[in-house]
Nucleic acid binder design. Structure first.
Lengths: 213, 213
DNA sequence: TACAGTATACGTAGTTTTACGCATGGCCTA
DNA sequence: TAGGCCATGCGTAAAACTACGTATACTGTA
């Protein structure tokens, strides 16, 4: 399992603000990485990073909102706490609509920021745990051969082996074999378990199946 | 099916603003209900109402944010577009965190509001459609007797009848009867279908089961 | 080029699990 | 006391799972 130490990322161009926040957080036992520009952060970013991001909006070069967009484009799930001295309402609304965890204005009470950081870290931990589970299932799914995948989908639709056999125009015996392989490769101990796993990684499947019920 | 005409609700204490917005929306073919106070709206509110809510924040009596809280408490899913002349950033952030659809400041371009309303209506339509399906399943679930519910939960865990029988300390035959009733009452045509339906109404079940796999 | 590995497909046979019909009985409530 | 809920036994049939064995075809490598 891909267990990265949670880390608080700070992207803030004001040296004094950045360094003092870093010190405070480190004194509380957190691991911190601070960057003076959005570009510097982006250069080291990858989706496996865990923790949260404290992000200034107004910065030279790439600003905070642009960074948020780029992170969203790369499927980042790092909760973002925006911190800004020059924010206005439309900016805050857009940031929140784009999935920001919070948006606070300078000057702020330090304690307030710390609390939000704790909550953001907790959220990320939760999200990341469910993501790990989904990824594990996904990894198993990729072991399936095309034929096994065909059978899996029909199994999830609740079709009996003989129906699957008819649908795929193969013998019932062959379906049974594929079916056993599917259960084995996905480490499913029952059909119910199998269905739950597949729905966990892709609730969309549920939508597409609903029509066929 | 509970098909209510989508309706745009306006809660705004300024008569001129409220009435002019109502006229514009009606001229576009929308059904509109306008209220001069949050209390008036709340008095007629119920969760079956479909559409969206255009809500002023600063009003005598209950303000817009309080109304949002009350609606959330009553499981409202009506998308809320806040409109305010005196909003600040913290207020906007809180409104968004509480699930507001949007938050715009007066004065606004009318066209902008109209577009947001259209999007809010579309969102509500989507949400409501998936809600209907979940409610239909929920209604079936409520027909289950306590014992049938016990059996259902164990079925979803993927346990075989004999295991369920042992768990509940009843005979296998009795489990079979309950199981058949569950399938019948939930209109499930297969175990896979049953699992999908239960997960559709409550993805939380999935979380609580994941530990037991 | 020959061989290993993988994917696909099918058969027989035996066991387990499900599904269901039929019959019986206790308990509690309207 | 009628009806719903819960429980059980017996027996049949269908479906699913398991085990063991056979066969063809494609791919990549020794």
């Amino acid at each position: 399992m891909n267990t990265v130490t949670p880390r608080i990322f700070i992207v803030e161009d004001d040296d004094a603000v950045r360094e003092s926040l870093q010190l405070v957080l480190e004194s509380l036992g957190h691991t911190v990485s601070a960057f003076a520009s959005a570009g510097d952060f982006l250069a080291t970013f990858n989706t496996d990073l865990a923790g949260c991001l404290v992000l200034d909006i107004r910065m030279p070069g790439m600003n905070g909102m642009e960074l948020q967009r780029k992170l969203n484009d790369s499927n980042s799930m790092l909760p973002i706490i925006f911190v800004t001295g020059h924010g206005d309402v439309p900016m805050a609304v857009e940031a929140m609509q784009q999935g920001a965890f919070d948006f606070i204005q300078k000057p702020y009470r330090e304690q307030q920021l710390l609390e939000k950081i704790e909550r953001a870290l907790a959220l990320d931990k939760e999200n990341r745990e469910s993501l790990h589970q989904r990824q594990a299932i996904l990894a198993h799914l990729e072991e399936l051969t095309p034929r096994e995948m065909d059978v899996l989908l029909l199994m999830i639709e609740g079709k009996a082996n003989k129906v699957i056999a008819a649908d795929l125009d193969i013998s019932q015996r062959t379906v049974e074999i594929h079916r056993a392989r599917v259960m084995e490769k996905l480490r499913a101990n029952s059909l119910a378990h199998l269905v739950r796993m597949v729905l966990a990684i892709d609730p969309q499947v549920l939508q597409s199946l609903r029509a066929t019920d």
